[in-house]
């Protein structure tokens, strides 16, 4: 069996990786934020969000992901107040897709984003994997789980190398 490390390209460095294409810029980042998956009654979740400001991505009726600006020590586990918390600070790579052509690239990755670029819930199927979408004014930030980040990156590379002679 031959070594597959040449066929499967090495993963990009998730800090410096960048793609410049016609009408779209793609950058990656990770690690520097406290990210917590919160499940439980909306009252308790709302209280937590007040205490730890950041972006709240609603995923399902019973779960939301809080992206705080700093490394914050919310304790993993089941809390008697009726909320379950999981520290997922290192689980995702953030990939920002911005620019005038971002919407078309996002739509290529997910027919759901073609239907509604600002979905009510953050989790969508994109390039064959499930990831979280945070819409931005000029595109979107994708939170992709680390094991899938190299695939998403290579998908973005392939998708942005649009030959001009193919529509």
């Amino acid at each position: 069996m031959s070594d597959r490390s040449t066929f499967w390209p090495a993963p990009p460095d998730s800090i410096t990786a960048r793609i410049e294409a016609v009408g779209v810029t793609v950058t990656a980042s990770c690690g520097d934020r406290g990210v917590f998956l919160l499940s439980g009654s909306s009252k308790t979740v709302a209280q937590l969000v007040k205490d730890y400001p950041g972006t709240l991505l609603q995923i399902a009726p019973d779960r939301a992901m809080l992206v705080t600006d700093a490394q914050v020590g919310l304790q993993d586990g089941w809390h008697p107040a009726g909320v379950a918390i999981s520290d997922l600070s290192d689980a995702h790579i953030r990939i920002d897709i911005r620019g005038p052509a971002a919407a078309a690239l996002l739509a290529l990755g997910s027919a759901s984003l073609a239907i509604d670029p600002n979905p009510r819930a953050a989790a969508v199927g994109f390039a064959g994997v499930t990831l979280l979408v945070e819409p931005l004014p000029d595109g979107a930030r994708l939170y992709v789980e680390r094991p899938w980040a190299p695939h998403l990156w290579h998908w973005l590379l392939a998708a942005t190398q649009t030959a001009k002679d193919q529509p």
């Binding site: 899938w148 190299p150 998908w155 392939a158």
Partner: peptide, 14 residues
């Protein structure tokens, strides 16, 4: 786009 490593992608280790 489903060609080469983009087809049936594999998960990777950190």
């Amino acid at each position: 786009l489903s060609r080469g490593p983009v087809q049936s992608p594999l998960r990777r280790l950190a």
